[in-house]
């Protein structure tokens, strides 16, 4: 799985969207994308999740994990998006639980590229929780 399948690539710091799949039969979205819905087996359509979402958990990794190219300590958390999908990702900066966040292209280590969550003042649909 390359990062292009996870989000729209762009220069670090640019707002982006997550690539998810959405099932019209049961309403669930999945990240990363799936061929069909793992919950109900129906066909899914490619979808793009832009948020904003609500930060549901905010923590950090303080000891160096095996295989990680990101150097500890670093921030991580969970963003909950409208519709109920919760995605685990890095945080671009320190954020409290409940913060309104968007998805951003992030350089977690020199030359690395992934998505992260950062605070936004954009008003999106109300978060569900």
């Amino acid at each position: 799985m390359t990062h292009q399948t996870l989000y729209d690539d762009a220069a670090p710091g640019t707002a982006t969207v997550l690539h998810v799949s959405t099932c019209d039969a049961c309403g669930r979205s999945e990240f990363p994308r799936r061929r069909d819905c793992p919950a109900c087996g129906s066909a899914v359509r490619d979808d793009r999740l832009s948020g904003p979402g609500r930060l549901r958990a905010s923590t950090a990794v303080l000891a160096q994990p095996p295989g990680s190219r990101v150097e500890a300590p670093y921030l991580a958390g969970v963003a909950e998006f409208p519709g109920g999908l919760c995605v685990i990702g890095l945080l671009a900066h320190e954020l409290p639980v409940g913060a309104r966040v968007e998805v951003v292209v992030h350089e977690p280590y020199p030359g690395g590229r992934t998505f992260a969550f950062r605070e936004t003042d954009l008003l999106g649909p109300p978060a569900t929780c």
């Binding site: 799985m1 190219r69 500890a72 685990i88 977690p108 690395g112």
Partner: peptide, 20 residues
């Protein structure tokens, strides 16, 4: 992609669960 970006960490999952 989870491992190299620092998300392949079991205690991170337990921390999320505890925070929730």
């Amino acid at each position: 992609w989870q491992i190299e970006n620092g998300l392949g960490v079991n205690p991170l999952y337990f921390a999320i669960q505890a925070q929730e």
